[in-house]
């Protein structure tokens, strides 16, 4: 047996580059007209449609399997949510004030569920959970720093103390590889804590979007780690990054 040789550096495919460009361009152009959001849809879902009709063959069987499984998870999540929301709004006690926000909520739920499922399939539960937490912690760190500088300068003490809020997320990311089940339980506890702390009012759809983007990774990471259990060391772990859903 020989020593494993260096792995090849990951590079995005042409499909990913083109689709990502269309998505980014579409988002940017929505500042001119909201109809440009169609480009975002084309960039996000277009390659998948082309693969299903057999015009695009850029993914191998494992990647297609992971995509289809993630799509099934998104279908289940969105469907169940719809069957909760319909009686919620048709019970006669509530009404939908923001139909466009409701559409946005379902788009975010659909895409985010797909993304989380695909990432777990590609990276495995441990690596996916660790990366969620590193991204989360980094976002909290950046947010707390930005909110403490500039015109709303709050002093050096606040600038040094507030970023410490990110520390638990980095700590959990480190722990996830060593004690995955413990980390999973802590993530679920964090999910419950933030659920109470932010007092999400799910009658407001914007709160629903924030709930998905902020608490979704905590819930998904916690469940994934609890189910995955102890990590087996593997020096050949792939390190490929999925940027968009394409």
């Amino acid at each position: 047996m020989t020593e494993p040789k260096g792995r090849e550096r990951w590079r995005p495919t042409r499909t990913k580059l083109v689709a990502s460009g269309i998505v980014i361009g579409g988002f940017w152009l929505t500042s001119l007209n909201w109809w440009f959001l169609l480009l975002v849809g084309i960039g996000t879902f277009g390659p998948g449609v082309l693969r299903e009709i057999g015009w695009l063959h850029d993914k191998d069987e494992f990647q297609r399997h992971a995509d289809q499984r993630a799509g099934y998870h998104a279908f289940l999540t969105s469907g169940l949510t719809a069957f909760v929301l319909v009686p919620f709004f048709r019970s006669g006690e509530r009404s939908i004030n923001d139909t466009q926000e409701l559409a946005t909520f379902f788009l975010v739920l659909l895409w985010f569920t797909w993304l989380l499922s695909a990432l777990v399939a590609y990276w495995g539960a441990h690596k996916a959970a660790a990366r969620f937490l590193y991204v989360f912690g980094s976002a909290v760190l950046v947010f707390t720093i930005i909110s403490n500088i500039g015109p709303e300068w709050t002093g050096w003490a606040a600038l040094l103390m507030h970023p410490l809020l990110a520390a638990p997320f980095f700590a959990l990311a480190w722990l996830s590889g060593r004690w995955p089940r413990v980390t999973g339980i802590l993530l679920l506890a964090a999910f419950i804590f933030f659920l109470q702390f932010f007092r999400f009012n799910l009658e407001r759809v914007t709160d629903g979007v924030t709930f998905i983007l902020f608490l979704g990774p905590l819930l998904a990471g916690g469940i994934a780690l609890l189910l995955a259990g102890k990590k087996t060391e593997d020096p050949d772990d792939a390190d490929e990054l999925l940027i968009t859903g394409n």
Partner: peptide, 19 residues
């Protein structure tokens, strides 16, 4: 065999059963 390294990795780890 015409697949990605990720596919081989997943097969070896028993996470994916090939066609």
């Amino acid at each position: 065999v015409g697949v990605t390294r990720q596919t081989i990795l997943s097969i070896e780890k028993g996470k994916y059963t090939p066609s």
